[in-house]
Design a protein around this nucleic acid. Structure first.
Lengths: 142, 142
DNA sequence: AACATTTGTTTGTACATACAAATAAATGTT
DNA sequence: AACATTTATTTGTATGTACAAACAAATGTT
């Protein structure tokens, strides 16, 4: 009896498959502004909370602290954010250029939503997203 | 009005968050046999269909063809599989060593399931997994 | 005040994964 | 049979992400 057919019953397997699919779609949509999706999310977060620390960023984005360092580095190189170091913390702010592309980012984000919602329907799209978020919270809590 | 709080309503964002979480759990469980989870899945697939081609592997595992080349290369280096080239295709088989660890792989896989099912409950775990799989199929069909 | 612990950041390194281009074989078309 | 198209694989290169270790600052304890 073949086992290969049962990969679809493994949450590790399916969640990674979905993430790969969504990555491709999101990369396409955000490619219009030359940013990877996670970088765009980071920029939106900084726009929302100027002076945010990297620790807070990694909490909100659910990435490792080292990853947020790397992201901020890259966005700094593109002159979309700048850092202010104070003691052991670094506070992150948008540059003028970073502020300037916020609308474009939001537009890409909306297009991304439209893109998958068109396939899944608004209701299913929102339902599955909410359920995944809930599952994440439960898995993370312990 | 803060936008950061709404990332959880984005399927790209949540699916990646879940994948990162599941990766960590799966890597832990499969670390007992010194394999990354996807390598283990590939080995199970080859065990199920000896002589499978890399194209078929990439279809079943939902990865890019180049990725399946890379995986097979690595498993060949570990002497868990070998290749037989015929024409433009390469057929993949398990070595004795590869056959020998199948039980260990299955044990890790069961432990992985137990691990997240214990947190989510069997029912929820299976429900969300099935729904994600369905969503993937719909997104892939285009 | 001296030392230990915790907390935030950075750096080195590694891995999974992908795309695009190159290659090579198989198949279809004239 | 000659050429064009499709299909499977490989290779070069790039990106996202993580962990562990290093470092640096802040806080707690004696």
């Amino acid at each position: 009896m073949p086992v290969g057919q049962n990969f679809c019953k493994c949450l590790y397997f399916t969640s990674n498959r979905l993430a790969r699919l969504m990555n491709k779609i999101a990369e396409e949509e955000f490619s219009y502004i030359g940013l990877s999706p996670m970088h765009a999310f980071l920029l939106m977060t900084v726009s929302d909370q100027p002076g945010i620390t990297q620790k807070e960023l990694s909490d909100i984005l659910h990435i490792a602290p080292s990853t947020s360092t790397r992201f901020v580095e890259k966005l700094e190189a593109k002159q979309l954010v700048y850092r202010k170091n104070e003691g052991k913390m670094t506070f992150v702010y948008l540059t003028e250029k970073g502020i300037g592309i916020q609308d474009d980012i939001k537009r890409c984000w909306r297009n991304l939503y439209k893109r998958y919602a068109q396939i899944l329907g608004d209701e299913d799209a929102q339902r599955i997203t909410q359920q995944i978020d809930e599952v994440c919270d439960r898995l993370e809590k312990k």
